[in-house]
């Protein structure tokens, strides 16, 4: 029965891409997985891509021992405040952040491994009413927090050993920032979506708020996942977790919208919808490169190729899926999907 649940099903006639089950891991000491991610771990001169799983009260690091065999290397205990999400720091090694809170994020902690002392540590990075957080390249972390009337958007950077360096403050927009995305290929550009459905662009070097552009009423409650600039235009991958389904256009899980930052005009480029015969709306998901994955209300995981503009693989709802994340991988090893089930099992699929 377990094997049947995990066999990926391709939508009829929608291509040859597929998901191949590589391995499963389950934390026997915890029944619920809140989030899953990957991080590079280097110890005794050996650098490996490890899996990180989070339960409500702890975060565990898993090392690959062989085909379908994982060893739990360490568990950080995080105390009374529940874990909400793992915040990976792209391209970093031995460092990962975690967001904790009740209904909202109340603090962010850095979890780290020190190869010098061969020890695992944790430190408090930020506290407050944190509305959005994202790990950036070069061991940086951006977060937005709300005081009574003011919003603070701040970047903190870490040394290789996890020490916090002087931060940078970004000019906040009037509206609450709901999500961030780095602009790929532009080291100093960052975008964010806001609670009133705008896209904002910052200059990370100067902290300037460069532009605010309304996304449009056709694309409500947008959350940005990925952004890149091409030929003078800004392309943003959006999801709409809180949008109402409309009869005319259904409820696509992801959309790509192109903006002209010079004029603030925009238009939709493509929408990622479920193939005919499948139902369910977007719950949560992840985008890496041209690949997007989402867990739907039906319990299905769906994968889309954003370049082909089509759904290319489905994990059926019998798997009772709760999480879908793309792993950090080498360019040569291809894409790897981490899919978490409600019983706490995490399945690794090669795409």
């Amino acid at each position: 029965a377990v094997a049947e649940e995990s066999i990926p099903v391709l939508p009829d006639g929608l291509g040859e891409e597929s998901l191949q089950l590589l391995s499963k891991l389950k934390d026997c000491s915890s029944s619920c997985v809140v989030d899953v991610s990957t991080m590079w771990w280097e110890a005794a001169g050996c650098r490996e891509l490890c899996v990180v799983t989070a339960s409500e009260s702890s975060v565990s690091l898993w090392k690959p021992l062989g085909p379908d065999h994982w060893e739990k290397v360490y568990t950080w205990q995080l105390g009374q405040i529940p874990v909400i999400q793992i915040v990976p720091l792209p391209d970093s090694c031995n460092l990962v952040c975690v967001a904790l809170g009740d209904l909202e994020i109340g603090e962010i902690r850095l979890l780290l491994y020190s190869s010098e002392t061969d020890s695992f540590k944790q430190s408090l990075v930020r506290t407050g009413t944190i509305k959005a957080v994202l790990g950036l390249k070069d061991r940086r972390l951006v977060s937005s927090s709300r005081a009574v009337q003011e919003q603070h958007v701040e970047i903190v950077s870490f040394s290789e050993t996890g020490r916090s360096r002087d931060g940078q403050t970004l000019m906040p927009p009037e509206e609450t920032v709901s999500a961030f995305a780095e602009v790929e290929g532009m080291r100093d550009a960052l975008v964010g979506t806001t609670a009133v459905n705008s896209i904002v662009i910052w200059n990370l070097k100067t902290g300037q708020l460069l532009k605010k552009m309304h996304i449009g009423y056709s694309y409500p409650a947008s959350i940005c996942h990925r952004a890149y600039s091409d030929s003078g235009l800004l392309f943003v991958v959006l999801s709409h977790p809180h949008a109402k389904e409309s009869e005319s256009c259904g409820n696509p899980a992801f959309r790509v919208v192109v903006f002209n930052p010079s004029t603030a005009r925009s238009r939709g480029v493509m929408a990622s919808s479920l193939p005919p015969g499948h139902t369910g709306r977007y719950l949560e998901g992840d985008v890496r490169g041209a690949l997007a994955a989402a867990v739907l209300t039906s319990g299905t995981v769906a994968v889309w190729d954003l370049l082909l503009s089509r759904c290319t693989a489905l994990l059926p709802p019998a798997g009772d899926w709760a999480l879908a994340r793309w792993a950090t991988t080498d360019a040569c090893t291809g894409a790897c999907l981490l899919a978490g089930q409600r019983d706490g099992t995490v399945c690794l699929y090669r795409y």
Binding site: M171, M186, D188, A189, I201, N203, T206, Q208, L209, L210, K211, S229, S231, G232, L233, L234, V258, F259, N260, P261, S262, T263, R265, S266, R267, V269
Partner: peptide, 23 residues
């Protein structure tokens, strides 16, 4: 997308917006 949809495009939009925006 055609240019007429989105208005005139600038390859240097990031530098231009940085020069115009308040410090």
């Amino acid at each position: 997308c055609s240019e007429s949809d989105l208005g005139p495009v600038s390859l240097n939009w990031f530098e231009e917006l940085s020069a115009e925006a308040p410090p």
